[in-house]
Each structure stands twice: as C-alpha cells, then as structure tokens.
Amino acid sequence: MHCDRELDVRGLKCPLPILRTKKALSEMASGDVLHVLATDPGSVKDFQAFAKQTGNELLSNGEGNQVFEFYLKRK
C-alpha cells in the first residue's frame, strides 16, 4: 500500500505509539497516508479507538511476525 510517511514505534508501550502517531499525523497534509509499525499487542485496539476519536481513517491493520502494521489516512 502507498504511504507518504513511515513511523517505527516498535518496542514502545502504550501510550507512546499513539502519541508519536498523533504527532506525525499533525505534521502531514490532509489525505496523506502514514504507515506505522508497532510491537505492542494493545496497539490494535488503541489504533482503532484513535482513528474513531480523531476522524483519521484506519485504512488497514495487520500482524506479521509479531509486528503490527497500520495505515492511517489523515483527515
């Protein structure tokens, strides 16, 4: 999937992945896509809630080899 920016938050625990994602999205233009890599198992629910609360679109999420990937489109 196309992304405009990538953010690696592997090894960080809640709430740091969400806080760093929020900061990265604030620096991006509307419609840009952010690709996030995380290892915190709680990040799946955290990113779903974050997208719902902020209005940013969670385009996709998945897991592979204990790494969670998220694609968020900035509102």
Rank of each mutant, 00 (worst) to 15 (best):
I18H: 01
S30W: 03
T39G: 11
T54L: 02
D40P: 05
L12E: 15
A24Y: 05
S60T: 02
P41E: 11
V9I: 14
R20G: 00
M1R: 14
G31K: 06
L34I: 08
L12K: 13
M1G: 15
V44E: 14
E63C: 12
F70S: 01
L16K: 14
I18D: 05
K23P: 03
H2T: 14
T21L: 01
Y71V: 00
E57F: 01
L37P: 00
Q48F: 08
G55T: 11
P17C: 10
C3D: 14
Q53G: 03
N61L: 00
L59F: 12
S30P: 03
K52L: 08
E63I: 07
Q53Y: 00
Y71L: 13
K23Y: 11
Q66V: 05
E63W: 03
E69P: 00
L19C: 04
V67Y: 11
E6G: 07
I18W: 03
L72Y: 05
A49G: 07
Q66T: 04
D8Y: 13
E63H: 06
D40N: 12
S30K: 12
N56M: 02
V33H: 09
G31E: 12
S60W: 12
G55P: 01
V67E: 15
T54Y: 10
L19Y: 08
K22R: 11
G62C: 06
L7H: 07
L72N: 11
T54N: 02
K75S: 05
S43G: 13
L12W: 12
V36N: 04
L37F: 12
Q66Y: 12
T21Y: 01
M1A: 14
L12V: 05
K45D: 10
N65P: 02
N56C: 04
L72V: 11
K13W: 05
E63T: 03
Y71C: 07
E27W: 08
T21F: 04
D4K: 11
V67Q: 13
M28S: 13
G42H: 10
R20Q: 15
N65V: 04
H35L: 15
D4Q: 13
L58F: 00
Q48M: 08
K13M: 06
H2P: 14
M28D: 13
K13I: 10
P17L: 12
L72H: 05
D32Q: 15
E57C: 02
S30M: 09
L16S: 11
S43Y: 00
A24D: 08
N61R: 02
K22A: 09
T21S: 08
C14P: 02
